[in-house]
Design a protein around this nucleic acid. Structure first.
Lengths: 218, 218
DNA sequence: CTCAACATTGACCATACGGTCAGGAAAAGA
DNA sequence: TCTTTTCCTGACCGTATGGTCAATGTTGAG
């Protein structure tokens, strides 16, 4: 804590440090941007609306992010980070029940906590991944190959049926992300109300049991 | 066939009938629009680009479709028709293996044949279904309730495990549509090439066996 | 206190977009 | 043929958008 002024001032409410200002505003803008991009898509989103949601003048956005595309790129990258982090749950698992089970739970939790991020990601991929194509070809491809190897090991060990690992991964992504990306449709079919705590537990349990049984792990 | 002119003129190449002109151009525009809306989203699509893809002057689009939103609405409705038609495959099936199996096959075929349509639909729902909310609340809800009843009957008859029918339907939609909506990601992970005939068969078989096993139908 | 670096913002600009319209071409009816 | 209806399209318009900039305020090191 390199603060020479005082030790009795842990977090001042208004007179902020320079770095704090920067980080705080960037976060504020990124959150607003994530929401607006999710609701309107890249083309439909406007810098003015993002500024309004963030409660800042439009010109201020351009001070922190040079262009709309720069801002969008940051949003997508942030989502990718969250996404990749959750993917680690599959490692070091003794078998598919623990590994895939934990992965499903982690991804369902992301769908619940970051539905906007998931939508932005989906939209980006749907439109041909114009800004994160390199991620798909490097990080995602490597991660996928690694997980395929793990699944093959589980199959070889007789811990699950000889399912095509690639399509299993697609199914995992599809089912879990569906609860975020098509959340509005699910909400409508749920009588107009978002899934509550218990319903999310049911959804997660449903997906887990269906897939784990589907791959012959239980 | 109310054609008083001649019986030896089944389909003239150039001198077209009025109705033919109208229908032909509308189809042409709708196809171009579906592609552009899928690639750029509603907000990112421009009437000029749709016109270029259709090979018509922009003003001509506005002759057939008053506004961009009208055109978009038509595209979404067309997709919904295809989608609903495929849904019929689940009816009159003796059990889940036939009913759900056929439904998966039909939906995978749609993902393959109409990936753009699927993307437009996904995009529409992701953005809160601004133009097809009423469809979700009427047609889709009714269809869903009907299918839930069928599944409950199969469960009662001991033809499958007591899976939550609602989440099963979500899983069916998610997995099958994923191959269209995230086709670009799948293509990238496939070495940059679209799935070929054999790979589509594998994908379909994979999804079918995983889900049918997952619900205890096989 | 001074001053340089950083932060803020109202006003402004060029462009691109959805949409309009008048006027002409082509087909259908009489 | 003449007339009416439908179809076609270049030119145009108002607006909204992404982005710029100069002027001003704020912070903190020396």
């Amino acid at each position: 804590m390199p603060d020479p002024t005082s030790a009795a001032n842990p977090e001042p409410p208004r007179p902020q440090r320079r770095n704090e200002i920067r980080q705080q505003n960037e976060t504020l803008i990124l959150q607003a941007a994530e929401k607006v991009f999710a609701e309107a898509g890249f083309g439909g989103a406007t810098m003015q609306l993002i500024a309004d949601v963030a409660g800042l003048p439009k010109a201020n956005l351009h001070y922190y992010f040079a262009t709309k595309e720069d801002l969008y790129r940051q949003v997508v990258q942030n989502i990718f980070e969250i996404w990749l982090h959750a993917a680690e749950t599959m490692d070091n698992a003794p078998g598919p029940v623990e590994g895939i089970g934990a992965y499903i739970e982690a991804k369902m939790e992301i769908s619940r906590r970051h539905p906007d991020g998931s939508k932005v990601w989906a939209s980006e991929v749907m439109h041909g991944a114009p800004v994160i194509q390199d991620y798909l070809e490097t990080t995602l491809r490597d991660w996928t190959e690694g997980r395929i190897a793990i699944i093959h090991r589980w199959i070889a060990a007789g811990q699950m049926a000889p399912v095509d690992p690639r399509h299993l991964l697609y199914t995992l992504w599809a089912t879990t992300q569906h609860y975020a990306d098509f959340g509005h449709q699910i909400e409508t079919l749920n009588g107009g109300a978002p899934l509550d705590e218990a319903q999310w537990r049911e959804a997660t349990a449903s997906v887990k049991s269906l897939i784990l049984r589907g791959i012959g792990a239980i």
